[in-house]
Amino acid sequence: MDATAALTTPSATGAASADAVANPKIVAKNVNVHYGEKHALKDVSVDIAERAVTAFIGPSGCGKSTFLRCINRMNDTISICRVTGRITIDEQDIYDPSLDVVQLRARVGMVFQKPNPFPKSIYENVAYGPRIHGFARSKAELDEIVEDSLRKASLWNEVKDRLDDSGTGLSGGQQQRLCIARAIAVSPEIILMDEPCSALDPIATAKIEELIDELRQNFTIVIVTHSMQQAARVSQRTAFFHLGVLVEGGPTERIFTSPNDRRTQDYITGRFG
């Protein structure tokens, strides 16, 4: 499929020069994923820009979440899943056998579809990552990391008086921001978000989107979303997946105003999906 290369190869439309990513943080080349017999992702190649928000859109089952989970090797936990191809972060192959997946995941944080705080206190939720990676040498240092992460996730003011309460007692939106704080606490370079607002109401969603926009200054963010409006609001670049194929990618504005591919056009105008 020619269109899979849309992000890297100049295409015939002339919009190509604007499509190329100057200094990509993540580079994927010919990534294929099989779940047992099922060929879930076909020859996906994409560049993802540093300190920007890249959105993956597409109908359900199109492979966008699967691809997202390749970037921090979460698919390793599924025994029947097989990944081929090459994904590099800062030009380092993340499927290199000598690479420690634990260190990779410390660099690539993840926020999931459904808020999944641990059944521990708010403080312990955020302190979890720094503790297992041994970031903090003292209690004071850990306190600082926790406060800093909660502030960055704009949750600090809401929870500073009840850090010892259970994280599961927060509202859905607060739980999701707690999960973002938890991911930030290990100071990753990349944050992957798998439909982070799909379980939230519009107000909580607006808060998270605002937060994503702020986080872009410090982190490279990849977000999977079902909502095209959300992709348009928060992302600088967008990639459209369909049936396991990366159909088209490029600056969000161009994808939404003058898509190259017929399928992209049909999807963003709501003709299917």
Binding site: F112, F118, G129, I132
Partner: peptide
């Protein structure tokens, strides 16, 4: 729930850390 395991693995925790702490 699997989501708790995912959450922990996603933070870079090993299997034994996930079992012990989560």
């Amino acid at each position: 729930p699997q989501s708790l395991r995912d959450g922990s693995y996603g933070m870079g925790a090993t299997k034994s850390e996930t079992i012990k702490k989560v």
